[in-house]
């Protein structure tokens, strides 16, 4: 009893020492925060840009404007999510322990899914730019592949909680495995599937706004350009545009998801 307690104390002390060590290491190596003379100026310019945005940029019938950039961004997110929602299906089945009895296959698929999940979307986009060239297309592919990890994990875990008694009934009627899945499993996971896909769409809209920073299409490209030429009014209107779009998508998607379950 007494030994247990002292062990616990020792363990706590060790944890505290470890955390302290991490913090000392992290903060000691930090470069000194230097406000450049321009820093405050830039901050106030950004705020004044946000308050007096470049409204003429919103719509320009001839060329690159905010609406076109936002539409591109939405289109990338939508297509990416659409592709991912199909790609994740086989992985989800094969990573669900109660559907796929072969442990090796389940393990491999769970590993593939977590591998994709830790892979940042933006790194995927960099690789796709190398393969198919810069532009929205590489962004779509990056989001299409990147979202498979999260969707596959959520859906396969949802499947693992499904009631499988109906499967026995379907097998007894002479259904083959595909028909059995179609009738006994899919009706149970479909509402959550749509909910997860919508949730991922919300994430993908945010992700799509930054793809342009590395040249994978969408609103990020004009934003990074406006930042580099210090056109603060334009930065302001683009930021406002992103905030409004993301908020609207969140609200709409949230409403639909609430009705699904």
């Amino acid at each position: 009893m007494k030994r247990d307690k002292s062990l616990l104390i020792i363990r706590r002390v060790l944890v505290v020492i470890a955390v302290l060590a991490v913090y000392i290491w992290a903060f000691s190596g930090l470069p000194v925060l230097q406000f450049k003379e321009t820093s405050m100026e830039v901050i106030s310019s950004i705020f004044s840009g946000l308050l007096q945005p470049d409204w003429t940029y919103v719509y320009d019938p001839k060329g690159e404007d905010l609406l076109r950039g936002l539409l591109d961004t939405l289109a990338i997110a939508l297509l990416g999510t659409f592709i991912a929602s199909f790609l994740c299906i086989p992985f989800s089945f094969m990573a669900a322990r109660n559907i796929m009895k072969n442990k090796a296959i389940v393990g491999t698929n769970k590993f593939i899914l977590s591998f994709i999940r830790v892979f940042p979307d933006i790194v995927l986009a960099l690789l796709f730019i190398k393969a198919v060239g810069p532009g929205a297309f590489s962004g779509v592919l990056a989001l299409g592949i990147g979202a498979v990890g999260m969707l596959g994990k959520l859906i396969s875990e949802d499947m693992e909680g499904v009631d499988l008694s109906a499967r026995e009934a379907l097998v007894a009627t002479g259904a083959n495995p595909v028909k059995t899945l179609m009738f006994a499993v899919i009706p149970q996971v479909l509402p959550n599937f749509f909910s997860f896909v919508l949730y991922r769409f919300e994430i993908n809209v945010r992700a799509a706004t930054i793809l342009g920073i590395i040249g994978a299409g969408g609103i990020g490209t004009p934003l990074i350009f406006a930042l580099s030429v210090r056109d603060w009014e334009r930065v302001g209107i683009i930021l406002l545009g992103i905030i409004v779009m993301v908020t609207m998508i969140d609200i709409i998607s949230g409403k639909i998801r609430a009705r699904l379950t």
């Binding site: 930054i210 920073i213 934003l223």
Partner: peptide
């Protein structure tokens, strides 16, 4: 609403 890379930029 703003992703980390955008904030960083």
């Amino acid at each position: 609403t703003l992703p980390e890379l955008l904030l960083a930029a």
